[in-house]
Design a protein around this nucleic acid. Structure first.
Ligand code: ZN
Ligand code: ZN
Ligand code: ZN
Ligand code: ZN
Lengths: 160, 160
DNA sequence: CAGCTATTGATATGTTATAACATTCTGTTT
DNA sequence: AAACAGAATGTTATAACATATCAATAGCTG
């Protein structure tokens, strides 16, 4: 699998290409329109395993001559998030490309405060303790945010 | 126990009083200064089982003649969060009083999108699947954000 | 092509958060 | 008590994140 959890990827060029292809397929199969602005936004997010603020994305879009006002970036990001091609990292008010688009999943993130790398994994939160608490309380979970902040292996090493 | 998980509390007046007393004791035992602004900020958060934005808190502080500029609210909120007397709800960019201050815990929240009620519970995330993934990747978790959004029993009923 | 909807462009504004520096308060040393 | 140091607060300004609104355009449908 191209996207195992970890703080390095063997071949990021391939990683990007694969994700983009999956996104194209995903949109095609659902009649979603991956327009130039949206596609470029996804490419911008895929450039690194980090989360980018909407204004960072906007700056890159502007560099590409694709709009320079906030709504342009926010609309594209909203589309990607709703389509399941990107996620918002609430703890950072920033956005990151999904590492396994198309697969129905409940993402969880490991965020390094040293190098800002974001690693996506899955959670089975709804099956765990919080899910049990929610069911016990009669609470219907619709969306979850699971984010852990800390230090990745490389950054832990560096500060040792 | 006064603070069981759930979307009602039997006697909120008592709930507030208890929490405030716990907070006082907590600060006293650690040499932390629960100054008038900080205490009032905590009271404001304790008024309801909801999360309040910093500017909402600020408005209440201003009503009480205690400062009307953003840093006043943010500093008090930062103090409370660092002291473990309040938590930030990242999904709402808002703050809520801790329901069991002093106890070392990793909070998790159930947030109702109908009535905005926030219920705090615990998570053992670090022992669960994400914790395992983190250890496998050599990632050292320092802080976690676990928030579930959905509908509480009352609001589910109402929309039925 | 006429009409409809989705998307983009553009302007303005609203909301959340912090930087920077002055002042006041609190406890400690002399 | 006066001097001092550090913590807390007051104040101004600005940075960073996000949305409302309306006009223009592109893409599809009958
Ligand atoms: Zn994902
Ligand atoms: Zn790192
Ligand atoms: Zn708590
Ligand atoms: Zn509710």
């Amino acid at each position: 699998m191209p996207h195992t959890i970890g703080f390095q990827c063997a071949d990021h060029s391939r990683c990007k290409t694969t994700s983009l292809a999956q996104a194209e397929a995903h949109c095609a199969s659902r009649g979603l329109r991956l327009t130039p602005v949206r596609r470029r936004t996804l490419e911008i997010l895929l450039a690194e395993h980090r989360a980018l603020g909407a204004y960072d994305v906007l700056a890159h879009l502007a560099d590409a001559g694709m709009g320079s006002q906030p709504p342009v970036a926010y609309r594209a990001l909203d589309f990607l998030v709703k389509a399941g091609l990107a996620h918002k990292i609430e703890a950072l008010n920033a956005y990151t490309a999904c590492m396994h688009p198309g697969h129905d999943h409940t993402p969880a993130f490991l965020i390094c405060r040293g190098c800002q790398t974001v690693a996506e994994t899955d959670t089975t939160l709804a099956n765990g303790r919080l899910g049990a608490a929610a069911r016990g309380a009669g609470f219907v979970i619709e969306h979850t945010v699971v984010e852990a902040t800390g230090l990745c292996p490389a950054c832990t090493e560096e500060r040792a």
